Simulated assay, not measured.
Amino acid sequence: MDLQGTVIRPPSEAGSILLQVSLGCTHGKCAFCGAYLDKPFAIKDRQTVSADIEFAAARCRGIRKVFLCDGDALSLPQKRLEGILGEIQEKLPWVTRVAAYGNARGLRRKSDAELRRLRRLGLGKVYMGLESGDDVTLAVMNKKSTAVSMVEQGQRAVAAGFNLNVTVINGLAGVERSLVHARETARILNLMQPHQVAALSLMLVPGTPLHRRWQSGEFVLPDARGMLVELREMVAGLELKKGLFLANHASNYLPVRARLPRDKARTLLALDAALDGELALKPEGLRGL
């Protein structure tokens, strides 16, 4: 497989065929993100992608999921995406689901009919990085999307039939706006009603603007307790009608897996126990990206 540079994929895609259809991210300027510092955005040529699909056809017959890398696969032209999905259906008929990252800008470029067409061709899951529901935090982080715009595009993805998985980042607002970030993120998630929420804890990446702000003292990162207080505030505000809430990424201090709304009370009790020192937290040295 032709995998160029650092390849990022969601934890739940660990067992998937990683098919790199593009490089980097169309924006690539979020202050906190160091995922694609090694490569500018580019669309990979059809011959290379086709060769990788042929490789998977010969070597990956037991793998039933495909993840389209890199960070912005939905920004590919519609005909190009349809061609890739059609080729996956033809050459990898045992694959039951294709997934990709999708941001608000990429989704906005697709009509409702085009999104439904991608769904019929096998694209089943879209991962969206909300990061925060607080527009002040989004602007400071140079996200280039407002919370409302991400709600609108997330709702369109759900209406088209996609399983929507939304990522949020604890600690992203720093100490100063920590609770505002938590409350606004819960409010926006309630409007969006994704199928799954994945909460990560911010880890500063050298070489990013946010890391430089932290070094200069401009940005103050919440400590472990601050991260837990923020996470508890977020969970307390969530009113998901049906969905999975995960905070079991390697970056998190306390693993959380909750089916909402059923497990909300149990999750809040666990977070309270951790804040009271009754549950051990992950040591700093074991946290990772």
Rank of each mutant, 00 (worst) to 15 (best):
E176C: 06
E176T: 14
S178A: 08
E184P: 09
E184M: 12
E184W: 14
T185M: 09
A186K: 04
R187M: 08
I188K: 09
L191D: 05
Q196L: 13
Q196E: 15
V197A: 04
A198D: 10
A198R: 12
A198C: 13
S201R: 05
S201H: 15
M203K: 06
M203S: 09
L204Y: 02
V205N: 06
P206N: 08
G207E: 06
G207Q: 02
P209D: 04
L210G: 05
E218P: 06
F219P: 00
F219I: 07
L221A: 13
R225K: 10
L228D: 03
L231F: 10
R232D: 05
R232F: 00
E233Q: 10
V235S: 00
G237I: 06
L240K: 01
K241A: 05
L244M: 14
F245C: 00
A247P: 10
N248M: 04
N248C: 12
S251E: 11
Y253E: 00
L254M: 07
R259A: 15
L260M: 15
L260D: 00
R262I: 03
D263V: 09
K264S: 03
A265L: 12
R266A: 01
T267N: 02
L268R: 01
L268W: 06
L269M: 09
D272K: 03
D272F: 01
A273V: 02
L275I: 00
D276A: 15
E278F: 00
E278R: 02
L279H: 00
A280H: 11
P283H: 08
P283Q: 05
